[in-house]
Design a protein around this nucleic acid. Structure first.
Lengths: 224, 224
DNA sequence: AATGTACTGTAACATGCGGTACAGTTCAAC
DNA sequence: GTTGAACTGTACCGCATGTTACAGTACATT
């Protein structure tokens, strides 16, 4: 008779305005201070209400954490898969996707997410996997398809290993800014800076592959 | 009269075999589980002895952490600055430095260090800065100097923005493996895989800049 | 033999943690 | 007006944390 709550934990598990509020606050908190340093007390201090309510909606701190990562990840991957390259020419498409990519990657939301994921990828291997699949891998794949589609069309662009090519393009674009932002707190680049950076990478990238088609008869860059 | 230990904390602060043992064990522990999850109790369980000894040599958990990061960082940056490119031609030099770089970056030691640094760079901004300066920035600089030295010599290689070129080379080489290893626990590449990967990147990179010198009259890739 | 230093073992401290219990409140639906 | 579900506030549990205190041991130097 006693411990009714232990059997039926007082609350719903699915939709709820309160649940959303808690989740939202948890997102901010986890992204800011990380998993270990984020306490449930601090959470309710921000969102208001009571610990019991939190535990009515989320079984664990771990489950709450998973929900947080899912939430932010869906934001990011939605933004990423929302990039539509249909109708773009090769150069314009690369410029377009490049600007979006660099903007997204260096955004505060994504940097905080990446930090969180990298920090906890050992303890929660799932979230590392999910992040990689729904983030970088997704971007690589989209780029790779686009490159393949334009492999014979314009200019003298031809690519044999489109996956590697996509990774190179993204890496040239992203790597330095990403790491700088993760390690030292560099500010995200402005729209103008992004534009210029992408232009340089696109030009260099196209030159790289244009040359291969014109100067060498066959074969791509052997990689994997 | 009482609290003598509080004034003079019983032990030495500099050289000591015990201190080294503690530091070594702390390195392993912090690298494995991160700052928050590493407790002093776990530490002494691995190294033996007593908590008091730890606190005789290190004022804080934070100070101990800083010592750990310094230690591992010096290992890494020693390995990095130990790469001597004198006497190498352009292509061979890039191949050589590329192989070392990729090997170093994907090594367990460095990946664990990077994870730790990225995870704590918010709470300890210093270590993020130190890592970046003694790691990536140092590598970029070395590469950049090497590229500039060979900018007019062999082939038709010419570079106007050697810093950007160095970053691009390193990024193409590193980014994907680095991120994969951080997020999903990909195994480090074998020596053979490294060799092949670097060859591909070197060829593509040289083609990229060779083209610029032959097809365009002036100017590099505008970037920053 | 005496001294002083490095170290050990154990216990304690204050604090904060995740998580639970429970009584009380709000409020919409019937 | 009654019911019942969602929520709040507070107090609590057990436990682990960083850190300190302190009494005792090992040992090299004088």
């Amino acid at each position: 008779m006693q411990q009714i709550q232990a059997i039926k934990p007082t609350g719903p598990a699915k939709t709820s305005a309160k649940r959303d509020a808690i989740l939202e606050a948890a997102v901010e908190l986890f992204l800011e201070v990380g998993y270990g340093a984020a306490s449930i007390n601090t959470l309710i201090a921000h969102v208001g209400g009571s610990k019991a309510t939190v535990y009515a909606h989320f079984e664990n701190k771990e489950r709450l954490f998973e929900a947080v990562v899912d939430e932010v990840l869906s934001e990011v991957s939605t933004a990423m898969s929302g990039i539509d390259l249909a109708g773009f020419g090769l150069r314009d498409g690369l410029q377009y996707v490049g600007e979006h990519l660099l903007h997204l990657v260096t955004s505060k939301r994504h940097i905080d997410l990446a930090r969180l994921v990298i920090a906890e990828a050992q303890r929660f291997p799932e979230i590392g996997r999910i992040y990689y699949d729904h983030g970088p891998a997704l971007a690589y794949k989209g780029l790779s398809v686009f490159l393949l589609e334009h492999s014979n069309g314009e200019g003298s662009f031809r690519v044999t290993d489109e996956d590697t090519a996509a990774a190179w393009f993204a890496s040239m674009l992203i790597h330095r800014s990403f790491l700088e932002r993760l390690c030292i707190g560099t500010e995200p680049p402005s729209s103008r800076q992004i534009e210029v950076k992408v232009e340089a990478v696109v030009t260099a990238f196209l030159d790289m592959y244009r040359l291969r088609a014109t100067m060498k008869s066959e074969g791509g860059y052997p990689c994997d």
